[in-house]
C-alpha cells in the first residue's frame, strides 16, 4: 500500500545575514492513511517547520529546499505548480496552529474568514459557491466542532471570542475542505489547561468520526500520548526515533528520548526526581559533526562525532537513529 505521505531525505535551510541555518537535516517519514502520528521535540528542533513544509508555507526566502521530496498521495508537494498547491491546501491537507489569537485575522469577521476559506477551496478547482451557501456550510462546520449559535458567532470578530472558541473556529475552518490529513501544530499550547483537554478530545473525536489521518506536533508528551498511536521524536532537525507511542514511553531506545522521559515530573512523590538533559540545543548554523546529539550524550563514542547515524529499524515499526542503540 502506498503511504498517504512520504517524506524522503528532506533538507531545508534558512538563509540569513549571519549564515545558513540547517533547520531540517534529512527527514525521512512515511504516514499511512488513518494513522495518528505525534511529533515531539524541544522548541527549535524543526517540528513546526516540518509541519509547514507539507503545505509549503515556509516563506521563501529565507527558507530554501536543499534536497528531498515530500510526496502526498504520490504527488511531490515541492514540485507542485501554484494551481495544484492551492488545490492541496485545505482540501487534502489542512492545518491548525498554535495561537488561535494571532492565526485569525483581527479585522475580519469569523463569517468572512470561514466563507473565504470555503470559497477559496472551491475556487482552486472550479467555481466558488455563492456567499450565502458558503455561510450555511460554515454554520454546519461550527456545529460540528461544538459551537452553538452560529449566526451570532459568524457575525462576531476574533477578539470577542475566548481562546478555546477561537481554536474551535480554526478547527472548523480546517475541516471545511474535507481534508485527508490534518496537521495540528501545538493546537493546545496557548490554551488554559481545562480547555486544552476539551480541544484535544474534540480533535481526537473528529479524527475518529471522519477517519482523518492526524499529524500532531507538540512539545508535550502527555498531549501526544493522549491522541497518537505512533510518535516520532525530533532533535535539532533530525528524526531520532520513530515508534508506537506505548512502546516509546515504556522503553525508549534513543538516549535523547530517554532524557526527555526522565525530564517529565512524576506526580507520585516517591518516584525519581525529574532530570534535565545536560547542555543546550546546538546551533543550527554550525551544528556538531556526526550525530547532532553527541555533545550531550552519555553514550557518545568517537564514531558519533564523525558519522551521522541513519534511522535503522531495530524491530518492526521501531526505528532509531543511534549507533549504540540496541534492543
Amino acid at each position: 500500500m502506498t503511504p498517504l505521505l512520504a517524506i524522503q531525505d528532506y533538507r531545508l535551510a534558512f538563509d540569513g545575514f549571519d549564515g545558513t541555518a540547517h533547520v531540517l537535516d534529512g527527514i525521512a517519514l512515511e504516514l499511512h492513511a488513518g494513522e495518528t502520528l505525534g511529533v515531539v521535540g524541544e522548541s527549535g528542533c524543526g517540528k513546526s517547520v516540518l509541519a509547514r513544509s507539507l503545505l509549503r508555507l515556509n516563506p521563501s526566502p529565507p527558507a530554501r529546499v536543499v534536497s528531498g521530496h515530500i510526496r502526498f498521495e504520490g504527488e511531490d508537494v515541492l514540485a507542485m505548480p501554484p494551481a495544484r498547491l492551492r488545490a492541496l491546501r485545505g482540501r487534502r491537507i489542512a492545518m491548525i496552529f498554535q495561537d488561535p489569537a494571532s492565526y485569525l485575522n483581527p479585522l475580519l469577521s469569523i463569517g468572512t474568514q470561514m466563507e473565504d476559506a470555503i470559497r477559496g477551496q472551491d475556487g482552486a478547482t472550479g467555481r466558488a459557491r455563492p456567499r450565502d451557501a458558503a455561510r450555511d456550510r460554515a454554520a454546519t462546520l461550527l456545529a460540528a466542532v461544538g459551537l452553538a449559535d452560529a449566526p451570532r458567532l459568524l457575525a462576531s470578530h476574533p477578539h470577542q471570542l475566548s481562546g478555546g472558541m477561537r481554536q474551535r473556529v480554526l478547527i472548523a475552518m480546517a475541516l471545511s475542505g474535507d481534508p485527508a490529513l490534518l496537521v495540528a501544530d501545538e493546537p493546545t499550547t496557548a490554551l488554559d489547561v481545562t480547555v486544552q483537554a476539551q480541544v484535544l478530545a474534540l480533535i481526537a473525536g473528529l479524527v475518529r468520526e471522519r477517519g482523518l489521518t492526524l499529524m500532531l506536533i507538540s512539545h508535550d508528551l502527555g498531549v501526544i500520548a493522549a491522541a497518537c498511536a505512533r510518535t516520532v521524536v525530533m532533535y535539532a532537525g533530525n528524526i531520532v526515533e520513530d515508534a508506537p507511542t506505548a512502546y516509546l514511553l515504556a522503553r525508549p531506545l534513543h538516549p535523547y528520548t530517554r532524557g526527555l522521559l526522565a525530564a517529565v515530573p512524576e506526580l507520585d512523590s516517591h518516584g525519581p526526581r525529574p532530570r534535565g538533559i545536560p547542555g543546550g540545543i546546538p546551533s543550527l548554523r554550525s551544528p556538531p559533526p556526526g550525530c547532532r546529539f553527541h555533545p550531550r550524550c552519555d553514550r557518545a563514542s568517537a564514531l558519533c562525532a564523525t558519522e551521522k547515524p541513519g534511522l535503522r529499524e531495530l524491530l518492526p515499526g521501531r526505528a532509531v537513529a543511534c549507533h549504540h542503540a540496541e534492543v
Binding site: L57, R86, G90, A94, Y103, A124, G177
Partner: peptide
C-alpha cells in the same frame, strides 16, 4: 499563513 493553509484565494 493560516489563510494560505486554509486555501483562501
Amino acid at each position: 499563513m493560516s489563510a494560505q493553509a486554509h486555501g483562501v484565494n
